[in-house]
């Protein structure tokens, strides 16, 4: 008995079954990319002292507001370490026991990783810290997308069981 049809050329798909995908995809893109207002905080001057030691920054997690003028004081307590902030192109390098200082304006909102930029040992590629500038909108967008995903799953299965395919 032949198994399910195994054609070399596929039979045309009934696209009506997947009609729900278009509005859902549109909604997903809207959730991901629609600009949202950020709560306003008057920009401040901030002085952040960050200690770099074997494979960790202290503090490892920092929160500031968009527009803040940030001065980083990077102190290395063991070997040479670097500080490179994702998306900002901001870099520092501190020799052992020395302090390196630099300033930047936090003009992009979101969560950004900072990394050691000088090979400092085996775990160097994973020496990472986190700078949150304003609310983490991508995280909230992700939660909204998760809810959309569940609702899409419900719709897709309902369509199948209704036999609308």
């Amino acid at each position: 008995m032949p198994m399910e049809s195994l054609p070399y050329k596929t039979t045309p798909t009934n696209w009506k079954r997947w009609a729900w995908v278009i509005p859902y995809a549109g909604l997903a893109l809207l959730i991901l990319f629609i600009p949202l207002p950020l709560p306003f905080h008057a920009p401040q001057d901030r002085l952040l002292r960050i200690e770099a030691s074997s494979f960790q920054f202290t503090p490892g997690e920092i929160q500031i507001n968009p527009g803040d003028r940030v001065t980083i004081e990077l102190v290395s307590t063991d070997v040479v370490h670097g500080f490179s902030l994702d998306a900002y192109g901001f870099e520092l390098k501190a020799d052992p026991g020395q302090t390196a200082t630099g300033t930047f304006i936090a003009d992009q909102a979101g969560v950004f990783r900072f990394r050691c930029s000088v090979a400092c040992g085996n775990l160097h590629p994973f020496m990472i810290g986190k700078l949150q500038i304003g609310p983490n909108l991508l995280f909230f967008r992700g939660i909204a997308l998760g809810l959309l995903a569940i609702s899409a799953a419900l719709i897709s299965v309902r369509n199948v069981s209704r036999g609308t395919t």
Binding site: L32, G82, R113, L145, G146
Partner: peptide
């Protein structure tokens, strides 16, 4: 040094969303 781009962050969120849907 390498860095996380906004594209890769969005892609990660998209992959997690697809995983939850699936």
């Amino acid at each position: 040094v390498g860095e996380t781009t906004s594209f890769s962050l969005v892609l990660q969120v998209a992959m997690l969303t697809v995983g939850l849907f699936w």
